[in-house]
């Protein structure tokens, strides 16, 4: 499994032709306590950069953009009852949705862990 990062603080954990998307630890820390998450519907076709979800803290609403193009295959429904999971475990239980990856080539445009850590410095 490889994990890639966007400039906008989404991550995508890639397994074969599918990827799991969420926000980074840095992003959840900047947002503060997350209180609500609007997830996409399964089957939604996304182009890279499309608005896929919205996370709300008490002070801000932030759009989550699709890191790559593809189709939503599964959403983390647990988040609707426990949005705080995104704060507690953004890379694990706080994942947001899974998508099939339409063009694996797009992954090359994203950052790896080291590049992302450099990006948020």
């Amino acid at each position: 499994m490889t994990i890639k990062f966007t400039q906008d603080h989404e991550y995508i954990a890639v397994e074969g032709a599918s990827g799991t998307v969420g926000i980074t630890a840095y992003a959840q820390d900047q947002l503060g306590d997350i209180v609500f998450i609007e997830l996409p519907v399964v089957g939604k076709v996304l182009k890279k950069g499309d608005e896929a979800a919205v996370v709300e803290s008490v002070k801000a609403a932030s759009e989550i953009y699709a890191p790559v193009s593809g189709t939503v295959t599964e959403v983390n429904a647990v988040l609707s009852g426990e949005p705080g999971l995104v704060n507690q475990d953004p890379a694990g239980a706080g994942w947001m949705f899974r998508m099939s990856i339409a063009d694996a080539g797009e992954l090359d445009t994203l950052m790896d862990e080291a590049a992302y850590q450099d990006h948020i410095k």
Partner: peptide
Amino acid sequence: LTLSTREQHIRREK
């Protein structure tokens, strides 16, 4: 005041 992310001062054009 709560759920204020629906409101203009946070959500602006949305």
